[in-house]
Design a protein around this nucleic acid. Sequence first.
DNA 1: ACTGTTATTGCAACTCATTTTCAATAAGCC
DNA 2: GGCTTATTGAAAATGAGTTGCAATAACAGT
Lengths: 133, 133
Amino acid sequence: MSAVRNTKQKQLVLSLLKNSGRPMTAGEIYRLAVQQYPNIAKSTVYRNLENLVSRGEVSQGMHQNGESFYSIADENRHLHYMICKGCKMMIDFPKCPLSNVEREIAKSSGFYVTGHSLQIYGYCKNCRDKAKI
Amino acid sequence: MSAVRNTKQKQLVLSLLKNSGRPMTAGEIYRLAVQQYPNIAKSTVYRNLENLVSRGEVSQGMHQNGESFYSIADENRHLHYMICKGCKMMIDFPKCPLSNVEREIAKSSGFYVTGHSLQIYGYCKNCRDKAKI
DNA sequence: ACTGTTATTGCAACTCATTTTCAATAAGCC
DNA sequence: GGCTTATTGAAAATGAGTTGCAATAACAGT
């Protein structure tokens, strides 16, 4: 009974994500993947990403337009991002103010928290200096 | 020079949102709107929502699948939601832990924060009692 | 109230991320 | 090597949201 198979495509998606030091959308990953493996299908990239997320190896966030982005999960760091509306750069925001809050919620309302989604939007120093804002 | 016109469609969208005590997606609003105004167009609903959001009368959030939801903006309350993965109910979560954090960010990194997106996911008391979790 | 201007609408076609279907392929246990 | 079946590629489908454009209706000026 082999449950999970370790395919070239899966390895490729994971390695692209590991080598890029930043979060990427499925589209970006697909475009890079095609360069190394020309006939990989878009659906394969999506399926592998979904798989990696559900296994906890990759974590998933969302842009303002509803597009998902993916990054290697790091069990030691719970990470959010500040996203610059000028240059779209995503800056790590490791200080999550929610862990305490979640405990309070559970206690007071009986709501069992499984996770949360947090993104901070604005303009990075660079874009502000360039007079964009 | 009349800049903004007060159309029946706009009034309808706003009143549906006011009467429903909860956030709704554009699709939900459209389905309700059609009942009262059978040939209102989907695009009209979207355009009015966009308009109301940019004027600050309505605030916008996002579900895990990328779909937007809308609710009447209340200038006195900065609001987030806890979203139950069982019954999809959205529960107000008025205590936002970010205002202080945002100030710190600006000071330490030069990032100018314009806003943030925060949702908390889990299971409400009701769904937990029904042994769903 | 009547008229002209133009913001807004309805409709249909479009975009674009993501999902699904299904036959063909290839991991990996024997 | 052969067999089973998880996974793939390709193409079509889905669904939220957007856009182009001619028709409509708000509303300011008269």
